[in-house]
Simulated scan of single mutants.
Amino acid sequence: MQVSVRANALREALERATGEISTATATSRGTVRITVPIPERCTDEQWAAVLRALMSVPRWGATDGSGRTEVWAEIKEDPC
């Protein structure tokens, strides 16, 4: 899936902070959700970097429904 520069920057920031691979999915027309797992032994510095990235967008959250903590953030894409 092709994503905007903003969504790509967020994806890269989350991957850099966690050292994990993220996924990007379209949740509704014009909205992309980026999800990344949190490492089992996440350091304080990693969490700080994750939170900085998440706080840059208005809609984000976390889940552990898969047995592993994951964070997600949504970006509303600019219409072309």
Rank of each mutant, 00 (worst) to 15 (best):
I75H: 07
E74Y: 04
D64V: 07
S56T: 12
L54G: 07
V50D: 01
G61H: 05
T63K: 04
R52Q: 14
Q46C: 02
A62R: 09
A49P: 12
R41N: 12
C42I: 08
W47R: 15
A73E: 10
M55Q: 09
D44W: 03
E45W: 01
V50S: 05
S56Q: 13
A53D: 06
S66V: 00
G61S: 10
T69E: 05
S66D: 13
W72Y: 15
Q46L: 00
S66H: 07
P58R: 07
P58C: 05
T63A: 13
S66N: 11
E74N: 11
T69G: 02
E70H: 14
E70R: 14
A49G: 11
I38S: 03
P39N: 06
I75F: 08
M55D: 09
W60A: 12
S66E: 10
A53C: 09
G67V: 07
S66Y: 06
D44N: 09
D64F: 08
A53E: 04
E74V: 10
G61Q: 11
S56L: 04
E74D: 15
R59T: 14
L51R: 11
C42W: 01
L51E: 13
E40D: 14
R68F: 00
P58Y: 04
W72Q: 09
V71C: 07
R41C: 04
A48V: 03
G61P: 15
A49T: 05
A48I: 01
T63D: 15
M55W: 09
P39V: 02
P39K: 03
R52W: 02
T43A: 11
V50N: 00
W47C: 02
A73W: 06
R52P: 03
L51W: 14
A73S: 10
E74H: 08
L51M: 13
G61V: 09
M55Y: 10
I75S: 13
M55L: 09
T43N: 03
